[in-house]
Design a binder for these strands. Structure first.
Lengths: 196, 196
DNA sequence: GTCTATAATGAGATAGAC
DNA sequence: GTCTATCTCATTATAGAC
């Protein structure tokens, strides 16, 4: 626990650099310098720059799946999207550098979104929500988009580069608004017009 | 009308290439070749690659503002987002190459979104919609995100690289779903629970 | 495992002839 | 306006000493 392995340190550094500056702008020289090692040494751990992406994707997938399974606070979801924001934002560059990740990212999304679908269905079955199957699908996709691109939106639309907890809560609020009209008020008879 | 000026041809080609491959992956050599001119000639028209971006931004802004002012079919909006999708998707690279565009893109967004706010307010005033001010703001931001990132979503989530009219209609449907719960049914007394 | 070279490439950009 | 030739430089990647 005393020290991080060099390999692990490289990955942590890369996640930060990729998030902050974008994959295309981060050179191997910058990575080595930030990690406090020589560039030659970097290539001892990762023969190609693209291999760093593959290694990071494994971590990302693991983290996302773990979260999807427990599935409680959606705020945690926004936190993960913040910590790995480069993965969706720079997906085009990633796919160009490492084509195999195209399928990987898609498969991961399928699994996570499948879990979301299950959760929504249960809410409908239990009566807490009222919506048709079609409405659920639309909701699912819209909420995916909001949660995936919220960070990018903050940056490009509002010029926010230092994201705080408030920004993540804000995103959570935006997403919650999608579902609100479909919630059935507690201790009241179901509204008839909510799911028209 | 017989021929496009070389400058115009370069811009048209670049928009396509940037959309298809991402700004970072499109070299000046590729641009020149696609435009059917020599690389040296390209630099006669644009001293720096970043200057191409500035020129394209002018066109983009003009097109978007024109659309925002007439403001009728939202489907046209998705069409524009498709034709200029690289602008939001690659914003980080754009800002790095031409910092001045950061302010430009933001200002443009402000104007366009301001127009959207006006339209929504009018719908509420005229009674076709029922929502609080706060709800309108949330709606405005969510619809912005959906419309801005819909194309990117299709690509990275569903692997769609050839976008058809159906895909744009689908996006329109997704966005419409945001507003539906707040619409007041015609020829019916306003629902009391829709905007809780 | 880490470093010092250094190769190999490919990109953006310029000068000057036509 | 367009081309040829060339330059500069950053970037990825490798070989081999320590």
């Amino acid at each position: 626990m005393k020290r991080q392995s060099t390999r692990e340190r490289i990955l942590v550094i890369c996640r930060t650099l990729f998030n902050d500056h974008g994959i295309a702008s981060v050179t191997t020289a910058a990575i080595a310098q930030a990690a406090g090692i020589n560039e030659g040494n970097l290539y001892y751990y990762f023969k190609k720059k693209a291999n760093i992406l593959s290694a990071l994707f494994e971590q990302f997938a693991e983290e996302q799946l773990a979260l999807a399974e427990q599935e409680q606070d959606m705020r945690a979801w926004f936190q993960v999207m913040w910590e790995w924001r480069f993965f969706y934002r720079d997906s085009m560059i990633i796919f160009a550098m490492e084509p195999a990740l195209r399928a990987g990212l898609r498969e991961l999304s399928d699994q996570v979104q499948g879990q979301g679908r299950k959760n929504l269905s249960e809410m409908v079955k239990s009566g807490r929500m009222q919506a048709t199957e079609a409405q659920l699908e639309v909701l699912l996709e819209n909420s995916w988009i909001i949660s995936t691109y919220w960070i990018e939106y903050l940056h490009s639309r509002h010029g926010i580069s230092e994201v705080t907890k408030e920004h993540l809560d804000w995103g959570y609020k935006q997403m919650s608004a999608l579902f609100e009209p479909y919630f059935v008020p507690v201790n009241e008879k179901p509204a008839s017009s909510a799911a028209s």
